[in-house]
Computed example of a mutant assay.
Amino acid sequence: MFQLMSVNFDDYIPNWRTQLETIAYNVLVVVRAGKVRYEINGEEVIAEKEDVLFIPQSTRRSGGNWNDTPHQKHTILFTLDRQEPTGIPFLDAGQFMKFNLTHIQYAYRRCERLYEEMRGGKSYRTMICQGIMQELIGMLARELEKTELAPSKRNYADTIKSYLLEHYRESIEIDALARLIHRSPSYAAALFKEVHGQSPIRYMHQLRVQEACSLLIHSDMSITHIADYLGYYDTSYFYRMFKKHTGFSPSDYVQQHNLL
């Protein structure tokens, strides 16, 4: 079904851009941080943190950093056997799509594994890569099959999410989030989990850990300083949260990154 061409991880590349061309392959883009600007068949598309794009073969496409600010994203280039349908509606339609995945952190980890496998030379690499790719495509197809949420619910959840994106380094209370949408704390927490697949507090920790990953690699801040900067005044608690979300301690994460 799929023929993988390449898997890339763009890690805050200065002056990143792709020329305007009609592409002869499909592209799956998973944005981890920042924003990226695309021109898709003459229309501007801005993709930001947690967005997933499907750019089909034969699209007229160019891309670049948004406002000259580097970003972080995974890109997967692949072709399809066009002699028979795949059974995946968005692939068979061959139209540009922009997604939001409920389990975006899991998608990040699968992209990381796919990137590592594609770069390595271990046995059964092709089989493993095909399996990961099929899982990612299946996740996207399943997301599109979900019953559409009422617009009011989506708006409430997005209001809370926007607040968390702006204030994740601060102390966050469910009561304060509930006041944003003039609903009860239990309703606010349940609604956010329904839309985004996790509680608001877990999402706050997720944002903090993502920022910690970036600071560990791209700054000279100490682990204690990073923990304090992100609102973790107990460094041991920061260690626990970091390992819970990444599977590594902060120092092990740096070591693993340096090995890539």
Results as ranks from 00 to 15, higher is better:
residue 6 S to R: 15
residue 8 N to V: 03
residue 9 F to N: 13
residue 12 Y to P: 06
residue 12 Y to F: 15
residue 12 Y to V: 09
residue 14 P to I: 12
residue 14 P to R: 11
residue 18 T to A: 13
residue 19 Q to V: 14
residue 19 Q to K: 13
residue 19 Q to C: 05
residue 26 N to C: 13
residue 27 V to A: 08
residue 28 L to M: 11
residue 29 V to M: 13
residue 29 V to P: 06
residue 31 V to Q: 07
residue 35 K to Q: 14
residue 36 V to P: 06
residue 37 R to D: 10
residue 38 Y to D: 04
residue 38 Y to G: 02
residue 42 G to M: 11
residue 43 E to F: 09
residue 43 E to G: 01
residue 44 E to K: 07
residue 48 E to V: 03
residue 48 E to T: 09
residue 51 D to Y: 10
residue 52 V to D: 02
residue 53 L to R: 03
residue 54 F to K: 04
residue 55 I to D: 02
residue 57 Q to Y: 02
residue 58 S to E: 14
residue 62 S to C: 07
residue 64 G to R: 10
residue 64 G to M: 08
residue 64 G to E: 15
residue 64 G to S: 10
residue 65 N to Y: 01
residue 65 N to I: 02
residue 66 W to G: 00
residue 69 T to V: 13
residue 69 T to Y: 00
residue 73 K to L: 14
residue 74 H to N: 10
residue 74 H to C: 03
residue 74 H to W: 15
residue 74 H to A: 05
residue 75 T to N: 06
residue 75 T to M: 13
residue 75 T to Y: 08
residue 76 I to V: 15
residue 82 R to S: 04
residue 83 Q to D: 12
residue 84 E to T: 08
residue 86 T to V: 02
residue 88 I to R: 04
residue 92 D to N: 05
residue 93 A to G: 02
residue 94 G to Y: 00
residue 94 G to H: 01
residue 96 F to R: 01
residue 97 M to C: 09
residue 99 F to V: 10
residue 99 F to G: 05
residue 99 F to P: 01
residue 103 H to T: 04
residue 103 H to W: 00
residue 106 Y to A: 13
residue 106 Y to W: 01
residue 107 A to W: 07
residue 108 Y to K: 05
residue 109 R to A: 10
residue 109 R to F: 06
residue 111 C to Y: 03
residue 111 C to W: 04
residue 114 L to I: 01
residue 115 Y to D: 11
residue 116 E to Y: 05
residue 117 E to L: 14
residue 119 R to N: 14
residue 120 G to Y: 09
residue 121 G to V: 11
residue 122 K to N: 05
residue 125 R to P: 03
residue 129 C to G: 07
residue 132 I to K: 05
residue 132 I to T: 01
residue 134 Q to K: 13
residue 135 E to C: 01
residue 138 G to I: 00
residue 138 G to C: 04
residue 139 M to C: 03
residue 139 M to G: 00
residue 140 L to C: 06
residue 141 A to S: 15
residue 142 R to D: 15
residue 142 R to E: 15
residue 142 R to K: 14
residue 143 E to M: 08
residue 146 K to F: 00
residue 146 K to V: 01
residue 148 E to T: 01
residue 149 L to N: 10
